[in-house]
């Protein structure tokens, strides 16, 4: 009986893992910036949110994604609500893409991801520079978008293993 209950709690934790990973990543800014690689940076929450909302993962609650955005803004020091808006826009984009897609294709998803993150980073950049008078380097945003795009395919293969494990 004890064995069954511990297995259940393990399963529950396993099914909530993407949300836990999202919260940890926004709190921790999990980005390897301390390696001091010139220009290297990527946005892990974008990949995570895009993939799991595209797959309509049952525990990936939009409200938690929204709250994760607020946490990210607080940690990074951006005006409150910017990251929430970005994350929710990703959710809208994936929801639309899911609705119009009949046969899912990984390469199509990948390039759609590039389009979406470019659009969202542009919106971010525009809001921050126009409305909040932040000085930002556009090149940093471009490089961040590029590496996030590259890393997407790597993380997707890991997440697929995870989904397979959950379904089994």
């Amino acid at each position: 009986m004890v064995k069954i209950s511990s297995r259940n709690s393990l399963n529950r934790f396993y099914s909530w893992l993407p949300i836990a990973l999202l919260i940890v990543s926004v709190l921790n800014e999990f980005d390897f910036n301390y390696l001091k690689l010139d220009y290297f940076s990527f946005n892990f929450p974008f990949i995570l949110i895009f993939f799991f909302t595209l797959k309509d993962f049952k525990h990936f609650d939009y409200l938690i994604v929204f709250l994760a955005g607020l946490i990210n803004d607080t940690v990074v020091g951006l005006p409150l609500g910017i990251s929430s808006l970005s994350y929710i826009l990703i959710c809208i984009a994936t929801s639309y893409f899911r609705n119009i897609t009949i046969r899912p294709n990984q390469i199509k998803d990948w390039f759609y991801f590039l389009f979406i993150i470019s659009l969202i980073n542009s919106i971010n950049y525009t809001i921050l520079t126009l409305f909040f008078s932040y000085t930002l380097v556009l090149m940093d945003y471009l490089v961040n978008t590029f590496f996030t795009f590259l890393f997407y395919i790597i993380f997707v293969s890991i997440f697929k293993f995870y989904l397979k494990g959950v379904n089994d």
Binding site: D56, K58, H59, F60, D61, Y62, L63, F66, G69, L70, P79, L80, G81, I82, S84, L85, I88, L89, C91, I92, A93, S95, Y96, N99, I127
Partner: peptide, 25 residues
Amino acid sequence: SAFLKKSTQQKFSLLTLVFVSIFII
């Protein structure tokens, strides 16, 4: 559908959350 439809697990529609985000900004 993308903006307004709530899945079984979702408590808020995405449109609501977008408005809340803009309101917070």
